[in-house]
Design a protein around this nucleic acid. Structure first.
Lengths: 398, 398
DNA sequence: TGGAATTTGTTTACGAATGATACGAATTCC
DNA sequence: GGAATTCGTATCATTCGTAAACAAATTCCA
């Protein structure tokens, strides 16, 4: 129990000594000693070559996450490719693979082996015992059990993707299928040091979102929360779903028939000074500001993070959006800060993997009765009959 | 730790035997025996006169919450009165007091003693040692620390009400100041047996809301979440904040100058068949449906509960609202069910008290290090040197 | 009517986790 | 080089929960 708390202290990449942890958790150093020994034999933490002594007294031994302690695969599915990444415990991408799909994306059943083969080729880079599992991000409505309820872009309806993957994948892999905005938000969350109230807005063909309240994902009763794109807004007298105005599919002037999102965005940037484009951007800014204001009044995030292909247009309208957003805010209601996402095109795939990573740090749900350990705690280096307290000491004793 | 879990099992008013609890929590009966003895000496649970033997074998002893185990006061503040209720552990109102305020409500500082005197007169009904504290519901923006940031109806700005009450109230009282919609939602939540994803919408002069995701209140970064009334919507070409269309202050045709909400509502009901009123109700239904659809796409509640004075008009438009709401829902997105609130005019006061009650059942926040017990566990009947296991047995041994 | 079967609640012995305390180790200060 | 300080560990006591056994209260059935 305490060992999990210790692990959580290292979650953000910090280096702490045992004594630091003891102070942070309000327990004795002895207790931390046991917990760390446990984590070390499980291969989840490492001692680092002691950074800076500085203070008087015996310097502590810095502990950090073992990057190789656990590995996670993340896959993003869209109409062009299956993009997969392999993530280590410190959130570093250590391998990637993009597998273009032709027209096969229409058939979810046919995509299952494609997803798994992309994953398998990443899995080859690492020790299978350390591989926690596979996360998949899908653009569309995904239920609590990873079933794709409706993914209009892909043309999928009611397909139990998580179940299908679970059946076909190695039994040791954990499988998690989720909405792409949820995944993207998880990536941002994992990179945060402290939990915050964060609204992730994914600007792609549609407009998706995910809200993390104090670091906790708000998924709703069915897992469908965050459909910001379907909010009805009215811009310059025209009323309709936000994503018909702020999403790529409805971006005025930019999205010519047959163009990809990237082409449209490139064209907008190339013609950024023409009156036509300026007007279109202004309309976009207006729609965005109203949508974000509505979401802010309902959710009160401290930060809004914009991601997705269209978000590269945001700097062009940043001033207009923030200004209108502030103007729309209720008296006393603080306008959240607006940023671009930390991760770019790979964000959803990284986030899908990050969701699995988060399980390792997740507090047990005290609501339920019995729960298995989130990760098999097999030692990286099998040591015979060690009293656990000697598990680290290689560096010190050598 | 286990004793809290036992308490939580009884939260909804259920009667369970020790063996039932052991099965539910996946622990041995011995463990439950200890935990229950602890709860019994703390005066939080009681044995009941054994309801129904039924099954073969020795019948279990039914346990339930001791209604007198803890008492909570809740106060609602509006422009007409300070309304206070005294709630027991089983959510029953055991005393009430309405203290009309004249024009003094404008001065928050002057309201502090009025709130406390109303509370004191309720506190006289009960044992001070069993009185957990006082919850206060305020119509307006309330920050995380119970400071009223902006309450337009009352004309309050930036007043640290919780702090002021804490200073003036008896030191043993816990004080909690929150938004009225949050309070109302807490009342509904407490009456639920299972945690659900519930959107509470409070239809008063303004339109407030509160969302509970799987039973957990979503309060936002500053505690300002739920300002549904400030969502910009467009109804029949007219665009503006939802509460100017669906709130009493902006209810067309009904709210004549100088009328109270109650008068306006009565007038609407009296003239429900005139074309004018029908048109007004239709507009109201339309605005409500759009607001609820927007909120549903963002939050995905399984239930929406309507409360507040205006909610009595809802049955007149129920069909229109549910129909339009369904029509606006995204393909695959389930429309939530719509209900009227369980509690009427006292809902906010009851909810303010229920928030304190919820603390007794709250799981400890594993994020923080040291936490005091949420409730002083002084025995109701001081028994000398009892080995705790004999604490109940009165009924059995007599 | 009286045992057999069954379920409940408690008791006793034991194991695991954590705190308290003491001690050796590693470093700075002087 | 010694005093001061901090770190990590070892040892013992305490607390919490389990396992197993047992007494109690009831139904079933001859």
């Amino acid at each position: 129990m305490i060992s999990l708390q210790c692990l959580r202290l290292l979650q953000g990449g910090q280096s702490l000594s045992r004594a630091d942890m003891a102070r942070a958790l309000g327990v004795t150093r002895a207790t931390i000693g046991h917990a760390v020994a446990e984590l070390a034999t499980a291969g989840l933490v490492l001692e680092t070559p002691t950074p800076t002594p500085e203070r008087i007294g015996r310097p502590g031994v810095a502990l950090r996450l073992n990057p190789q302690g656990a590995l996670f695969m993340g896959v993003e599915i869209d109409t062009r490719a299956v993009s997969a990444v392999l993530l280590d415990l410190t959130m570093r991408v250590i391998a990637r693979k993009v597998d273009p799909v032709g027209d096969t994306f229409h058939d979810p059943k046919a995509m299952v082996p494609r997803i798994l083969s992309a994953a398998q080729s990443l899995a080859a880079h690492t020790d299978p015992a350390r591989l926690a599992g596979l996360g998949v991000a899908v653009p569309g409505l995904v239920g609590r059990h990873g079933q794709v309820v409706n993914a209009p872009l892909l043309g999928w309806r009611n397909f139990a993707l998580q179940e299908a993957l679970q059946d076909a994948a190695p039994a040791t892999w954990q499988i998690d299928v989720c909405n792409d905005a949820f995944a993207f938000a998880s990536a941002e969350r994992a990179a945060d040091l402290e939990p915050s109230s964060l609204l992730m807005v994914l600007l792609a063909e549609g407009v998706g979102s995910a809200y993390l309240d104090e670091g906790r994902m708000i998924s709703g009763a069915h897992g469908f929360a965050g459909e910001l794109g379907h909010m009805i807004v009215s811009v310059h007298g025209k009323s309709g779903a936000l994503e018909t105005m702020a999403g790529a599919a409805g971006f005025p002037a930019a999205m010519r028939p047959g163009w990809s999102v990237a082409q449209g965005v490139a064209d907008v940037l190339a013609t950024a000074n023409t009156p036509e484009t300026l007007a279109a951007l202004d309309l976009w800014a207006e729609a965005l500001a109203i949508g974000l204001a509505n979401a802010t009044h309902l959710l009160d995030p401290s930060r809004i993070v914009l991601g997705g292909p269209l978000s590269v247009l945001y700097p062009a309208v940043a001033d207009a959006v923030t200004q209108r957003l502030s103007a729309l805010m209720l008296q006393g209601h603080a306008a959240p800060s607006l940023h671009l996402a930390r991760y770019g095109g790979e964000g959803a795939a990284i986030g899908a993997a990050a969701r699995l990573r988060a399980r390792i740090f997740a507090l047990p749900d005290l609501g339920k009765s019995p729960s298995a350990t989130p990760f098999p705690t097999a030692p990286v280096v099998p040591n015979r009959a060690n009293p656990a307290s000697r598990a680290l000491r290689q560096r010190t004793t050598s």
